[in-house]
Design a protein around this nucleic acid. Structure first.
Length: 531
DNA sequence: TAATGCCACGAGTGATTG
DNA sequence: CAATCACTCGTGGCATTA
């Protein structure tokens, strides 16, 4: 009986407590609701005010647009003097100018536009909406594709994930734009000469995606894989002394320069890098026939510049601007070459003739091992005028050889202007930045810190993961301007566009500066057959 | 069966940012 | 100056086609 009484008391106490709790909860909910209601009504008032403001702005905007249009077509109209030809000229203006002008006027008259539709109507250029992007962070919680890393979630206030749905909507809700318009949407793209344009900006992507940076605990390890080169000047002196000012023609050696390294020469302390310096010196030797021959550089540059530029995949770029671009590099090179030599380039090339180091080769690097490529590479890089010298055999370059040339030139360009201090012990490649080396090392270690949460696939670089996301989203931001076909990557689109070019790539992309110019022809052949 | 075209990824490098 | 971003090229794999 006593037990029953105790239970009854317990039940009654529990009931009382439960009722009290419910009452407390109800009270708090009511309080919260009251606050929310208050906020809602306040927000409603704000919205009403904004609507009125928008209506006012709309009216002003219409007036302003009317003035701008008249002003744009008839700039002298205010002076009661019109030029009919002006109409034609303004038609030729690109619409971005139009819109810039409109926007400028709008900014003058309406510094705070609020009507989204109105903005979309009048400012189709503007797609980057910071607030919208931030809202993604604040509100989205589902379907996230997370970039994971060791520090995922460690940063407070910034969620490590993003909402895929919103990500898609950001793209989808952008106004449909014609290819011409798309150029204006992405003014930082390759410009009008670049057919096909992305519909989404990388800025948006990078904002939408988590920027959680995985920091692998490889720093200590990778430090062990790094050697900071500080023997340059000493070895430079040795090399220049050995070679002499006018003895850099490599034809006689046919690439043997790469294998002529004395393995024991640099072994004290850094046996793994015994070949690097000689390698890069050889390269510089081949680039600069003689140090005393620097006055001839402009000639060489004029020929080399566009070629090097084309190696970056813009064969249709303006040759002269490319030459100017390269002149800057080469001038710097001319100044710096006496003091320093670039580090560790073309390890593949070296390794192709150095079986002892072949262990460091990556599978793809093996693809460039053709000795012919090396020899022809030497020929290419030897002449003072790479494009027109009779020793230049660009016409007969095989595709792999061409790739070698491109890689070498690219490395020479970057390596010749700046010091490269960090070398990879796996492949000997050198980098300017330790971070670059760290990323590179991932290709050897297999570390892939960036993981797609949807499919679990991992990547060595964040941008590769971002690019991978389109596989899941189905987004194809690159559209062929000729057939409208869309592609996930610009390179795919470019490759596709070559199928349109097909018969006459010359007329489509490159107008030879000089008919019969081997360099231009080289560019063309590369454009056509690079795939 | 070879050729072709597209997809997707690895990786290098210049530019930008903090 | 290091880290990161953004862009690019080269490549392998797969599907389609002649």
């Amino acid at each position: 009986m006593a037990n029953c009484n105790f239970q009854a008391q317990l039940v009654s106490i529990m009931e009382v407590l439960a009722k009290a709790a419910v009452a407390e909860i109800n009270k708090r909910v009511d309080d919260s609701c009251a606050v929310i209601r208050l906020e809602i009504t306040q927000s409603q008032r704000d919205i009403d005010g904004l609507k009125r403001k928008c209506q006012m702005m709309e009216g002003e905007l219409k007036k302003t647009r009317g003035r701008v249009r008249r002003k744009a077509f008839y700039p002298m109209a205010s002076e009661k003097s019109s030029y009919p030809v002006k109409i034609v000229l303004n038609k030729q203006r690109n619409s971005s100018q139009w819109r810039d002008e409109e926007m400028a006027v709008e900014e003058d008259s309406q510094p705070q536009p609020t009507d989204v539709e109105q903005r979309a109507e009048t400012e189709p250029i503007l797609i980057k909406d910071e607030e919208t992007t931030e809202d993604v962070w604040k509100t989205d919680t589902q379907d996230e594709l997370r970039i994971t890393g060791e520090e995922s979630g460690s940063k407070s206030g910034q969620p490590p994930s993003f909402e895929q749905r919103q990500f898609d909507e950001d793209f989808i809700t952008q106004p449909n734009i014609s290819p011409e318009d798309s150029m204006e949407h992405y003014p930082n793209s390759d410009g009008p000469e670049e057919p096909g344009t992305p519909r989404c900006t990388s800025v948006e992507k990078s904002k939408v995606f988590s920027t959680e940076q995985h920091r692998p605990a490889e720093d200590e390890d990778s430090q062990e894989l790094v050697m900071v080169k500080d023997e340059k000047e000493e070895e430079l002196d040795q090399t220049t002394a050995l070679a002499g000012p006018d003895q850099f023609v490599m034809d006689e050696t046919d690439g043997q320069l790469w294998t002529s390294v004395d393995p024991g020469r640099h072994t004290d302390g850094h046996p793994d890098f015994s070949f690097h310096s000689t390698e890069e010196y050889s390269q510089n030797i081949s680039i600069f026939p003689s140090q005393s021959g620097l006055p001839s550089l402009p000639t060489m540059t004029d020929a080399v510049g566009p070629s090097v530029h084309s190696s970056r995949g813009k064969p249709h770029a303006n040759m002269f601007s490319a030459a100017a671009h390269m002149k800057k590099h080469v001038r710097t090179l001319a100044d710096e070459t006496r003091q320093q030599m670039p580090e560790g380039q073309s390890s593949e090339m070296l390794n192709s003739n150095n079986d002892g180091n072949s262990l460091a080769l990556q599978p793809r690097q093996h693809q460039h091992r053709a000795s012919e490529a090396t020899v022809r590479m030497s020929e290419c890089m030897t002449g003072s005028n790479m494009a027109t010298t009779s020793t230049f055999s660009g016409y007969s370059l095989s595709r792999s050889s061409f790739n070698m040339v491109k890689r070498m030139r690219t490395q020479w360009r970057s390596g010749g202007t700046t010091e490269r201090r960090f070398s990879c012990t796996f492949c000997g490649k050198s980098f300017q930045r330790f971070s670059q080396l760290k990323v590179h090392l991932r290709s050897h270690t297999g570390e892939k810190p960036y993981t797609c949460e949807q499919c679990g696939r991992s990547f060595t670089k964040q941008c590769n993961l971002i690019r991978h996301a389109v596989v899941h989203s189905g987004e194809k931001p690159y559209e062929c301007t000729q057939c409208g076909k869309c592609f996930t990557q610009r390179s795919s689109m470019k490759s596709h566009q070559r199928t349109h070019i097909g018969e006459s790539p010359v007329s489509q992309h490159v107008v030879p500066a000089y008919p019969g110019d081997p360099h231009t022809s080289l560019m063309l052949s590369q454009t056509k057959w690079s795939k």
